[in-house]
Structure formats: C-alpha cells, structure tokens
Simulated assay, not measured.
Amino acid sequence: MVFIESGEFRMGSDDHYAEEKPAHRVRVDGFFMDETPVTNAQFRAFVEATGHVTFAEIAPKRKDYPGALPDMLKAGSLVFAPPDHPVFDLRNWSQWWAFRFGANWRRPYGPGSSIRGLDEHPVVHVACADAEAYAAWAGKALPTEAEWEFAARGGLEGAEFAWGDELAPGGRQMANTWQGEFPFQNLALDGFERTSPVKSFAANGYGLYDMIGNVWEWTADWWSTRHPADAAKACCVPQNPRGGPKEASYSGAQAGARIAQRVLKGGSHLCAPNYCRRYRPAARHAEAIDTSTSHVGFRCVRREVSA
C-alpha cells in the first residue's frame, strides 16, 4: 500500500458531466491505499481462505426480483459483447452488454473462458458486497469517493487527467481506455482490447497504478446526482466528506426491485472520446450494488496514521 498524506483539493468538475458539479473544496485525512486494483491472484487467495461465493455465482431469488422472467433467474453477470457494426444510438447500452449465465470472476466471458494467464489482471464480476467482503478479510475498507479522487489526482491540482491536461500527450497512451469508435471499433493503440495487467502504465504522482482506465472501482459512498455546494467560508471546508444518504441513491425498478447505488470512480477500458469521457479523476458513475460486470473491480484503503 502507498501512504497518501492528508490534504485539501477541489473535488469534482464544472466542465463535464452534470453529476460532477459543482466543483468544491474538501479535506481528507491521510490514509494508505492499495498500489493497484485487487488482482485475480489476490482475490483467489481470499476465496481459498474464506470459501466466499460471489454475487454472480448465486442464482437470484424470485422474492428479490418479483418482475423477473423465470428463465433469467440463473447465476451470471454482464459481459461486454461488442457489435460488429456501427451503432448510431449510444443511449441503448443493451447493444453491447449481454447478461451471460455462468459469467463470474473465474470465467470473465462466460462458460468456457477462464482467468488462466490473467493473475495480474484486475478481478472483475465483483458486486459491491464482494468487494467489501474482501476488504474486511484483508483488514481494510473501500475508499470514500473523496479519498479516491484525491489519490487519483496524484497531487496535480486542477489538472484534467491524472497525468496532466492532455489525454494522450505526444500520442502516448497513459491508461487502458478505448481508442476508436465505441462500441464497434477498437483500435487498441494502448495494446489492450480488454483488461490489462496492473502496472502496465506509469504510476501517478503518488505512486498509484491504474487509477484511470482498466476497470471502474467501487467506493464506499452512496450515489448522489450532484456534489454539495462549496463551503461559504474557508474555515468550513468539509473534512472527510461522505456521499449522499442511501435512501436517495436508489435506481429505478430492476425486475420489480429498487436497488441502492454506490459511486464508481476511474473509468475503464471501455471509456472512449465518442461515448464515455470518464477517464478523469473528477468523473463518477452510479452502479447498483447488486450488479457485477466485466469492467468493474476495486481497490482498498486503510485509515491509519503514517509511521
């Protein structure tokens, strides 16, 4: 883990998506953060030690999803399935996401796939409860949104990206994101079509890897549609702020169920200039806590005083 010194920064952005507004100053205490997202090898050690069964490996119960079709009540997870033709309506994500029975952290693309040779790739197909279970086993916790964003900025106050103000300075790819026309044309200029081994790209100013791209990362905060306003006085800057209340985070009905949402940070290998420009520290996204996908993982923190 890497120790992040306490500090104050401007969280959010007034220049991009509405949910990032308003930019506002906050302070965070010092904390330790995992150098990389949790890998398949690390998650395997947890499962072998505890016998943990992930959310994606458990068939949904009808009582939890009263409106679900009977043939959908099977264990599985969402897998990115790129179309082989141009897509003109990017609002309909069902054109490139497929719920595959049998997809889970061991079989990231469904039956017949495996994580052989992917030990150093981030674990995926983990729901929020799976991430929290791992963190508790490791004596850690999920980061707050403020902690995560402060760490991702790497000391670059006000910079657009975690490495500066250009997405690809001099043509150099700085993170595992999407190059080409999403979702059908992946030029893979960064060398990867899906996830990449951790540490494939340079660390940020705090020595943290993959804070941008590769996989989205769970945080401990409930989703809110926007940030609170800036404090009226400098003396009142929030210290270690938390997200909105759980009651305000619920998504629309999913098969007849209302599901609470957490904040994801960091973007993934599917973020593209023509679709999801969330490869920035300020970017944020809502994810239902009962959802697992092939592009969401996590990392942990430990809140201790530096030695």
Rank of each mutant, 00 (worst) to 15 (best):
M1W: 07
R10I: 02
M11Y: 12
A18T: 04
A18H: 09
A23P: 02
D29L: 05
M33T: 14
P37F: 01
N40P: 06
A45P: 01
T50D: 06
F55P: 02
A68Y: 08
L73Q: 12
G76D: 06
S77H: 05
H85K: 14
V87Q: 14
R91P: 01
N92M: 10
W97D: 08
W97Y: 14
A98P: 01
A103Q: 05
A103L: 04
W105A: 09
W105N: 04
R106V: 03
P108R: 07
P111L: 03
S114L: 01
H121P: 02
H125S: 02
E132H: 11
E149V: 08
F150W: 10
G154F: 05
A162G: 10
W163V: 07
E166G: 08
P169L: 04
R172G: 04
Q173I: 00
W178Y: 08
F184D: 15
Q185G: 06
L187S: 12
L187Y: 09
A188S: 14
L189R: 15
D190R: 06
G191M: 04
K199E: 12
A202T: 05
A203I: 01
N204T: 11
G207Q: 14
L208I: 08
Y209C: 05
W218P: 04
T219S: 13
T225P: 02
R226G: 12
D230L: 01
A234F: 03
C235H: 11
N240H: 13
G244Y: 03
K246F: 02
A248C: 00
A255R: 13
Q261E: 14
R262L: 03
N274G: 12
R284H: 07
I289P: 06
S292F: 01
T293P: 00
E304M: 07
S306T: 04
S306L: 01
